[in-house]
């Protein structure tokens, strides 16, 4: 693994083994995250992006399981690491996560300071006093008054809770942070403030950041590299500049067109719906909704093909 690669995901498969069938939520996804790079993982409900995010910490909730592939961080394969090893050395120390819906991720019965202190006490063996000091130090970095260590979550607003979650993800100075829909459920002004915060923190803490969201506008604001997921597959990846200027995969094109703009009025959508992942179609999963579909699309699944300097798209149009 190169020295400038923070995360190397190879052919990752994550399946949910449910009563009604096996849901192939992530089917053979590969990508690399460079050190200090910000990658956006975009897609709509059910595309597998959150599942992918959880799998990077091997935290997929049952009945989900990593069914194949590798996740390399610092030469270690997270996908096959035993739980005890993950807890001791990986989770929160090397890679951490800011969860969706921060409102619900904080324990209501403990004060903020105690919740921030916990990872420090468990993973770094600090005493409670030392950990609380650390907690007070990190809060101003996320724009919060250190005095809130003595407050309970219900006394804070949604935006403030989200900032606490970000502080919690950074407190052990991990190399990689995954932010899963960090601004959904937040008002537009608070959203803009949190995005400003993420932008300044990624430089200050020198982290590699993965931002998961369905909102391509906020992706544009923050990420350098962008990956688009559809029905469990990665359909396009490339630099943010290239992807927005010249999207190659028909799904990416449709998605970008669907974003309402202030520069011109117009409403566009992609007709149809994503396929049922218990029974995915043979061939390209986007075929049914693709305006450019032809024979080969329904027979064979397209691999990632190079379509630009940094851009790859899984589409037979570019063979």
């Amino acid at each position: 693994m190169g020295n400038d690669v923070a995360l190397d995901v190879q052919e990752l498969k994550v399946y949910y083994y449910t009563y009604t069938g096996v849901v192939k939520a992530v089917e053979g996804v590969s990508f690399k995250l460079g050190k200090g790079e910000t990658l956006g993982l975009a897609g709509e409900s059910g595309c597998g992006k959150s599942t992918l995010g959880f799998s990077l910490m091997n935290l997929v909730p049952p009945p989900g399981k990593i069914a194949g592939g590798h996740i390399y961080i610092d030469g270690m394969d997270i996908a096959t690491m035993p739980e005890s090893e993950l807890r001791k050395n990986v989770r929160w120390k090397k890679i951490s996560m800011v969860f969706q819906g921060a409102m619900n991720a904080l324990t209501p019965v403990y004060k903020i300071g105690e919740q921030l202190a916990e990872p420090l006490m468990i993973h770094k063996g600090l005493s409670k006093e030392e950990a609380m000091e650390e907690a007070k130090n990190i809060l101003p970095k996320v724009g919060l008054d250190p005095a809130i260590v003595n407050r309970y979550p219900h006394e804070l607003s949604g935006g403030m809770k989200q900032r606490v979650m970000i502080a919690m993800a950074l407190i052990l100075r991990p190399d990689i942070v995954i932010a899963d829909e960090p601004t959904t459920a937040l008002d537009v002004i608070v959203q803009a403030q949190i995005l400003n915060l993420l932008k300044s923190l990624k430089n200050e803490f020198n982290i590699s950041l993965i931002l998961i969201s369905h909102d391509l506008s906020i992706m544009a604001e923050v990420v350098e590299k962008l990956a688009i997921m559809y029905a469990g597959k990665m359909v396009e990846i490339g630099s943010s500049d290239e992807m927005f200027a010249d999207p190659k995969h028909p799904y990416t094109q449709g998605l970008l067109k669907s974003i309402p703009k202030l520069t011109e009025k117009g409403l566009h959508y992609i007709p149809g719906q994503p396929p049922d992942l218990r029974n995915p179609p043979s061939g390209c999963r986007f075929a049914d909704r693709c305006p450019f579909v032809f024979d080969k699309c329904r027979r064979e699944e397209p691999p990632m093909l190079k379509v630009g300097d940094t851009q790859y798209a899984a589409c037979w149009l570019y063979e």
Binding site: N196, A220, E221, S240
Partner: peptide, 19 residues
């Protein structure tokens, strides 16, 4: 509110928005 609206233009990602 208007200043806070995210714009899908990646060239603006170096700008820290002034709200």
């Amino acid at each position: 509110l208007v200043a806070a609206i995210p714009i899908p233009d990646p060239k603006r990602r170096h700008i820290i928005k002034d709200i």
